[in-house]
C-alpha cells in the first residue's frame, strides 16, 4: 500500500501561565492511501490535537506531519476537516455552504456548470439533494453534519479529517450516517482519519484503530488492525466473533490498560474545600 501521510515523532507543548504543558509526545503513525483510521482514547488525551496538527490548524512543537512527501505547516483544502459541530455558515444554504468550498478549490479549473454539477453531486452523495436550499437552522443536526461531510468531500481532499463527526447526534441518526460514510468510503476510496470515542463506531468503520494513552504527554498506545471484510453490515457483525474480539481489544485498552483515574475533579474540589475550611479557621 502506498503511504500518503506520515506522522513522525510529533510532539506538542502549550505554554501556560504555570509553565509548559506537554500534550503529545512522540506520536508516530503511517497511513496508507485509502485507509480508514480511527483515533480513540479518553477525552482530553489529545486526539483532537493530533487531528489539528494534521489539519495544520496547530503547529507541532517537535516532529511533524508529512503529506505526499511534503511537510504540513498550514491548513489547506487537501486536508478537509469535518468538524464536530458541523461548522456550517448559518447564513448560507446547504448548497451555498458547499459552493463556498468548491469555488475556492476549483476556481479556474471547473466551469460554472461543472461546479454546479459537482456541488449537486456531493450533496447527493450524502443524500441531501432534497434540502439543498435550506439553511442550517432549518435542518436537523444529522442533516447539518451530512452537509458538513459534503462540503469536505467536495474539496476532493487527499485526506479527510473528521473530528468526532457524529458525537453530537442521537444513536439512530449516528447509525444512518455511519452507513452513509461507509458507503461513500467504498465508492470514493478516500483516506480518512476519524476521531471517535465510540468503540462500536471505531470497529465498524476502521481498517485500523489507533488507541491513545492518557495525557499529559499522550502518545499512541496500541494500533489494532480490523481485518473485517468490506462491505460491512452492522446487523451481521453484531454476532461476528472477529468483530467482538476487536471490540474487546479496544475496550480492554480503554478500561484496563488506560483506565482513566475516575475522580478527576475530586482532588480539585477537595482542595477547594480544604481552602474554604482553612479560611474559615483562619
Amino acid at each position: 500500500m502506498k503511504m500518503i501521510l506520515e506522522l513522525s515523532k510529533v510532539g506538542i507543548s502549550f505554554e501556560t501561565p504555570r509553565g509548559s504543558f506537554e500534550a503529545l509526545k512522540e506520536v508516530d503513525l503511517k497511513i496508507g492511501e485509502g485507509e480508514f483510521i480511527s483515533l480513540i482514547g479518553h477525552s482530553g488525551c489529545g486526539k483532537s490535537t493530533v487531528l489539528n496538527i494534521v489539519a495544520g490548524l496547530l503547529q507541532a512543537t517537535s516532529g511533524g506531519a508529512i503529506l505526499d512527501g511534503k511537510e504540513v505547516y498550514e491548513p489547506g483544502p487537501e486536508r478537509a476537516v469535518v468538524f464536530q459541530n458541523h461548522s456550517l455558515l448559518p447564513w448560507l444554504t446547504a448548497y451555498e455552504n458547499v459552493e463556498l468550498a468548491v469555488k475556492r478549490v476549483f476556481k479556474g479549473k471547473k466551469s460554472k456548470a461543472e461546479m454546479r454539477e459537482w456541488i449537486e453531486h456531493n450533496l447527493s452523495l450524502v443524500h441531501m439533494s432534497h434540502a439543498m436550499d435550506k439553511r442550517p437552522d432549518e435542518i436537523s443536526g444529522g442533516m447539518k453534519q451530512r452537509v458538513g461531510i459534503a462540503r469536505a468531500l467536495a474539496m476532493q481532499p487527499r485526506v479527510l479529517l473528521m473530528d468526532e463527526p457524529f458525537g453530537a447526534l442521537d444513536a439512530l441518526t449516528r447509525a444512518h450516517l455511519q452507513d452513509s460514510l461507509m458507503d461513500i468510503h467504498r465508492k470514493l476510496g478516500n483516506t480518512v482519519i476519524m476521531i471517535t470515542h465510540d468503540v462500536d463506531e471505531a470497529v465498524l468503520l476502521s481498517d485500523r484503530i489507533v488507541m491513545m494513552t492518557n495525557g499529559p504527554s499522550a502518545t499512541i498506545g496500541e494500533v489494532l488492525d480490523v481485518p473485517l471484510p468490506r462491505p460491512r453490515d452492522r446487523l451481521a457483525l453484531a454476532d461476528d466473533p472477529l468483530f467482538n474480539r476487536c471490540r474487546q481489544r479496544v475496550l480492554q485498552f480503554l478500561y484496563e490498560k488506560q483506565r482513566k483515574v475516575q475522580p478527576i475533579s475530586l482532588p480539585i474540589d477537595s482542595k477547594k474545600k480544604n481552602k474554604k475550611e482553612e479560611r474559615k479557621h483562619g
Binding site: A55, G56, L57, E74, P75, G76, P77, R79, A80, V81, F83, N85, S87, L89, L100, A101, R104, V105, M155
Partner: peptide, 14 residues
Amino acid sequence: VSQDLVNVSRVLRL
C-alpha cells in the same frame, strides 16, 4: 466570530 468558522476559513485558505 465562532472559532469553528474561523477554522473553516483557514482550511479553505480564504
